[in-house]
């Protein structure tokens, strides 16, 4: 077991815990960036510099999009708080790790979770060992649990955008953990998917913030609240003009 990989997995989960539990949108974006960049740095085997660049740029772009959406949006609240979120993530990660190691101990010959990559080898029950791929499955399960709650239950906001990004990243990690390293073209596609999920979540969060502010403005009867021209401000937002 490579301790550097364990540290990276811890960073992935810790960043995600910060992202979903902090009240500050800037802090959430930083936590998300830490989590996504750590996931990009997970190496086994070490990817080429170009692939690493694609991964890191996609991670930072996704975090920047969420930050853009959160700048004027409503503040985030976690019903559980960070200790609860951290416990949930840890439990899920341990469960995922356990399943991956268990599967690997049965089918150790293959390239599955924890497998050696020697496909077609006979099934032999072997002592369990924690491998890089099993760690990835564990990290993916942790992110999945952290992202699922805001994605499913949260109203349209930055919190939901973060949930969407975390769930997407979780599935991408589990994919590599289960089926092995991706080709270069798939790395590009994975990066595009991550950025797309962040962009769509961020765009919807901005729109929801504008709609909420417009409703508040309507209730207040203050028709000139957007005099500064900023359409998505928490205090002064208005629906953008509808010129066709």
């Amino acid at each position: 077991m490579n301790l550097a990989l364990v540290a990276i997995v811890l960073a992935i989960v810790a960043g995600a815990v910060v992202a979903v539990s902090t009240r500050e949108s800037a802090g959430a974006a930083i936590g998300l960036a830490v989590s996504l960049v750590a996931a990009a740095l997970f190496f086994d085997p070490l990817p080429s510099a170009a692939v690493l660049g694609v991964r890191i740029v996609a991670a930072l772009l996704a975090a920047a999009l969420v930050r853009w959406a959160g700048r004027h949006g409503t503040r985030q609240l976690s019903a559980l708080g960070w200790p609860g979120e951290a416990l949930l993530a840890t439990a899920a990660a341990v469960a995922g790790l356990g399943v991956a190691v268990g599967l690997a101990s049965i089918g150790i010959g293959g390239g599955g979770p924890g497998g050696s990559g020697d496909e077609g080898a006979p099934a032999i029950l072997q002592p369990a060992s924690i491998t890089a791929m099993a760690l990835l499955v564990g990290a993916g399960c942790g992110l999945l649990v952290l992202g699922a709650a805001p994605l499913v239950h949260g109203r349209q906001s930055v919190r939901r955008a973060i949930g969407l990004v975390l769930v997407t990243q979780a599935v991408l990690l589990i994919r590599v953990g289960l089926a092995g390293a991706a080709s270069d073209l798939e790395e590009v596609a994975r990066a595009a998917l991550l950025v797309t999920s962040a962009a769509s979540g961020a765009a919807l969060a901005r729109a929801a913030a504008a709609a909420a502010a417009a409703r508040r403005g309507d209730r207040d009867g203050d028709g000139d609240a957007d005099a500064d021209g900023d359409p998505i401000s928490t205090t002064t937002a208005r629906r953008p003009s509808t010129s066709a």
Partner: peptide, 25 residues
């Protein structure tokens, strides 16, 4: 996005050596 993610997991499970099609027994 959900349909894509579900399909990714299904395909990964199919490609996994420990999955139903992996031939690891």
């Amino acid at each position: 996005l959900g349909s894509g993610l579900v399909a990714i997991v299904a395909i990964a499970w199919g490609a996994s050596a420990a999955g139903p099609l992996g031939g690891t027994g």
